[in-house]
Amino acid sequence: MKIQLTDAWNKMANRLESWLNNLIINLPNIIIAIFVFVIVLFLSKYISRLTLKLLSKSSLQKSMKNVIAKLISILVIFAGLFLVLGILDLSKTLNTILAGAGVAGLAVGLALQGALANTFSGIVLSYIKQIKFGDWIESNDFEGEVIDIDLRAVTIRQPDNNLVYLPNKLVLENPIKNFSSTAQSRVILTCGVGYSSNLEFVRDLVRQTIVSNFEPVANEKDVIFIYSEFGDSSINFETRFWIDSTSALEVAKAKSEAMICIKKAFDKNDINIPFPIRTLDFPKNFKFTQEQKEG
């Protein structure tokens, strides 16, 4: 038993001595490899910035420029890794890596299906013109301004200034409502007036009010006014007009301003905006008791 332990100790000592000798022999290469890899990291950042600067004069979207710069930066780092392996004289390791790249790629692809799908979707979203930086969009029940598109997610800023990160795959596969695709947005406002109102006067008054308070509306013909239904307590109408804005927040502000202006105009002309009321009908011979009258 003692002899076996001695042999095992000697083998371990010889192996450690061999490793130490190899480390000392390869120490210059290791130092050079570390130095080269650090340079590659700085070089990748510099090339990424240089790529953005060169692409700034192109007609590509800002998101596409960022994606191209990141991909070039990643390629530079991979090239640096292969260079480091060559400096360390790990050609056999390099060949093993290349030989196993197919199998490893398949395994990684299966394990990272979601991440790869988001990466591919990010490249597609960066290329298409239907969505770009500064657009006001609605997607997956979230609405806001697009402030970033990277290889993982689309970042939008909501009206309350909160940031929402939508995975690229979900944005690409689901409908996108882009409020910024046109130069104008339509404001739609619904309201109701009493049955005793002069409907033609109400229509003209609403149109005049919109024209006088909103600059983009040139004349009354630009205001669409439609009576929609006979409601339970009012005759309801809908009015529509355009404003020079592509932001949903600006549309909401314009709608609020229109409500204030129309309410002032109605009050000034004694036009009633009814609200639901309940009417109680009693039999003709019905009499209240003294307690009911006092109550």
Rank of each mutant, 00 (worst) to 15 (best):
A153K: 15
T182K: 04
E138G: 08
D281R: 13
E138H: 08
D89H: 04
R186E: 13
F286L: 11
S212I: 13
S247Q: 11
T51R: 11
D244F: 13
G114T: 06
V187L: 06
F201A: 05
G114H: 10
S121W: 02
T190Q: 13
K255C: 11
N140M: 05
F35A: 12
F142P: 07
I97F: 12
F82Q: 09
I131V: 09
V84I: 14
D150H: 06
I3K: 13
L151S: 09
N95F: 11
F266D: 00
G122H: 07
E173W: 15
N198R: 06
K255L: 15
L125Q: 12
F241E: 01
G295L: 15
K129Y: 04
T155A: 05
D281L: 14
G80W: 03
Q4R: 14
Y165Q: 09
L81V: 00
N161F: 11
L151H: 05
G105Q: 03
D204T: 09
G105P: 01
L98T: 11
F286D: 03
L94H: 11
L81M: 05
I25D: 14
I68D: 06
R278E: 05
V38W: 05
D89L: 07
V223E: 12
L54F: 02
V108H: 11
S91E: 12
Q130A: 12
I226E: 15
I47Y: 02
N14C: 07
M12P: 02
K177N: 15
V36Y: 01
K65V: 09
I3Y: 10
Y127W: 10
L280W: 12
N29F: 05
L205A: 10
Y227F: 04
F266I: 01
R207W: 04
E145S: 00
T190E: 14
N22F: 06
N213A: 03
F201M: 05
T239A: 06
L110W: 07
I262F: 00
D204Y: 09
T155E: 00
A254M: 06
K169D: 08
L94I: 14
S234Q: 07
I273K: 01
K2V: 14
T51F: 07
L60P: 02
S185W: 04
L116W: 07
S197C: 08
S180V: 00
I31R: 02
L112W: 04
T209I: 01
G144I: 02
I77A: 09
A258S: 10
S91K: 15
I31F: 02
A8H: 06
L50P: 00
K70C: 06
V84G: 05
E215W: 09
G295C: 13
T246F: 08
I31K: 02
P175S: 12
I271S: 01
A153M: 14
